[in-house]
């Protein structure tokens, strides 16, 4: 029993790390623009495919592949902001319109990936071979890298938003766009930076995940849904709350898989999300209305 729980705990840590990276990207865009980017999962998929192309097809090595996947996803994120989000700034139905445009971007990217890379499953090699034992449970060394890397990346983003000139400008834009322009911040540029940063996180997550799961055009769909649950669960707007909720959801999911099985787990997770929305609409870590 204890061994099962420890295994679930470690599995939850791996899932939590993955969700934290995905959800923090969603959170950056939401807190800066007030937009929910439904193409976030597809950007993750692009990161994985580009990493595979550079690493395996071109033979330039995994680290170069991960860097390329991150960069291409970031550039695509900036492009999505420029073409599909920016034209609707200030529109009274901006939130609804951008739901549609980012959903369209998701479909375009997924179908585009199918045309470019085909339907055959692909997988990246692992960063490090071998296995690591944590609390008696065994995970691959690559997963251990993901577990170690995620908090470092989250800490770096937190420091970036808090201490750097650009990070502070993103926070200012997120709180008051008009006043941000008044103090000299180029608001559209801040939006593009937020989208680029968010997409880079998605691309990096995809490139890292490509060694654990198969790379397919729709590989981003499930992590996107889980990241949405995390963001709603933790409360929109706070990176710390998002990270905390990501690890909590990862752990709950791992325990539910052990106790209830794979099929009931999404049912319970969504039920929890609905309960949180009803009783704590600002999330379990967010303040009351």
């Amino acid at each position: 029993m204890i061994e099962t729980l420890l295994a679930a705990l470690v599995s939850g840590l791996v899932l939590g790390s993955l969700y934290a990276l995905m959800a923090s990207g969603l959170s950056v865009v939401w807190t800066t623009l007030g937009v929910f980017n439904f193409a976030h999962g597809a950007l993750m998929m692009v990161g994985a495919f580009v990493a595979w192309t550079v690493s395996e097809a071109a033979g330039l090595g995994l680290l170069t592949g991960i860097a390329a996947g991150t960069l291409v996803a970031a550039l695509l994120g900036v492009l999505i902001e420029r073409l599909l989000v920016r034209p609707f700034y200030g529109h009274r139905s901006m939130l609804l319109i951008t739901v549609m445009t980012t959903l369209a971007a998701m479909i375009i990217l997924e179908k585009g990936a199918q045309i470019i890379w085909g339907a055959r499953l692909k997988q990246l090699p692992r960063l490090i071979d071998g296995e690591v034992s944590i609390l008696g449970a065994t995970i691959s060394a690559h997963e251990a890298v993901l577990v170690g890397l995620a908090p470092l990346i989250l800490f770096a983003i937190w420091r970036f938003t808090l201490k750097t000139r650009t990070g502070r400008s993103l926070r200012a834009v997120g709180q008051n766009q008009n006043s941000a322009a008044l103090i000299g911040i180029d608001v559209p540029v801040a939006f593009a930076i937020a989208f680029g940063l968010s997409a880079a996180l998605a691309g990096l997550t995809g490139a890292l995940l490509g060694s654990i799961r198969f790379i397919t055009p729709v590989m981003g769909a499930e992590p996107l849904v889980k990241a949405m649950i995390v963001v709603i669960f933790g409360g929109l707007g706070s990176l710390g709350a998002t990270a905390g909720a990501a690890y909590l959801i990862g752990l709950i999911e791992a325990l539910l898989i052990v106790w209830l099985g794979l099929y009931w787990t999404p049912f319970v997770l969504f039920l929890m999300m609905i309960i949180v929305l009803v009783f704590r609409p600002n999330g379990i870590f967010g303040g009351k209305e």
């Binding site: 502070r168 008051n176 103090i183 000299g184």
Partner: peptide, 19 residues
């Protein structure tokens, strides 16, 4: 202007960007 920023932070952003 920026509810979650302090007076110090608000003015520093303004000084750097605007000024």
């Amino acid at each position: 202007e920026f509810p979650e920023l302090s007076a110090d932070e608000t003015l520093q952003i303004s000084a750097v960007y605007n000024g």
